[in-house]
């Protein structure tokens, strides 16, 4: 995918960076997946595992930062190489944040599943996390294949995530109005939903970085904020029958 350099060690170093990004990406995907599974199945053991796994991503990010700085200092990269390296730093920061958000979801597992909650409470969150995970997976697949012409889907998907989040927000609000005992789990679930929505945003950021790495242009800025939860109030929310 990169042009061949005279010093083959340079190629090796660049390859190593992208390999580390892929490993971090895989790890982040797995963490999000397991955090939501732990939440839906009320599995504190799995949640603990997710919390422990976060250190791997933190280390990954630090290592990529170090390596990238060393490459810049040693090789004086230009053009595509420089974009590649700077992009790597940015993507690893995004992935590290994704890990933190997954960890936060995992931390809430105990509080949410404290009394047995009806499954309908989690169904929406599961659907939201599937959307966010699909987004993350497709973006990382584009990083592997470098086929940026496929990046248009990212914004569609982002809109879907926002719409789903808005709808979930409303639903959780109605549950809280129905029964004050729902307030604790639902508030935690609201934060979980927000975290997952943020994961989608990070995936979108990564997509923009990849577009920049490959083309050298910024993805045209046409991102209206689709999340409408700022306008939801109790008066217009009707309890679910």
């Amino acid at each position: 995918m990169q042009s061949v350099h005279i010093v083959s060690a340079y190629d090796e170093e660049l390859k190593y960076l992208s390999k580390r990004i892929a490993a971090m990406g895989g790890h982040a995907e797995r963490m999000v997946e397991q955090a939501v599974t732990a939440l839906v199945n009320a599995d504190p053991g799995l949640a603990q595992k997710v919390i422990r796994d976060d250190t791997v991503l933190d280390e990954g990010q630090r290592e990529i930062d170090d390596k990238a700085i060393i490459i810049i200092a040693k090789r004086q990269p230009m053009a595509a190489d420089l974009r590649e390296i700077v992009g790597t730093i940015r993507i690893s920061a995004d992935l590290e944040r994704v890990g933190d958000l997954a960890k936060n979801v995992a931390k809430r597992v105990v509080a949410v599943t404290d009394g047995r909650q009806p499954t309908s409470l989690f169904r929406g969150l599961e659907a939201l996390s599937n959307l966010a995970l699909t987004q993350l997976k497709e973006v990382l697949d584009v990083y592997a294949s470098r086929s940026v012409e496929k990046i248009g889907f990212v914004r569609d998907r982002d809109d879907q995530i926002d719409a789903m989040y808005t709808s979930l927000f409303r639903e959780l609000l109605t549950y809280m109005m129905e029964d004050p005992r729902n307030i604790t789990p639902c508030t935690h679930l609201l934060f979980c939903a927000k975290n997952i929505e943020r994961i989608g945003d990070h995936a979108t950021n990564i997509a923009e970085t990849i577009y920049y790495i490959v083309t050298g242009d910024q993805l045209p800025a046409e991102r209206p904020k689709g999340d409408k939860t700022d306008k939801i109030s109790l008066s217009e929310t009707q309890p679910v029958k």
Partner: peptide, 11 residues
């Protein structure tokens, strides 16, 4: 020509 470790990222 594609990197395998980039496609199959699972730990």
């Amino acid at each position: 020509g594609m990197s395998l470790s980039l496609k199959f990222r699972a730990p």
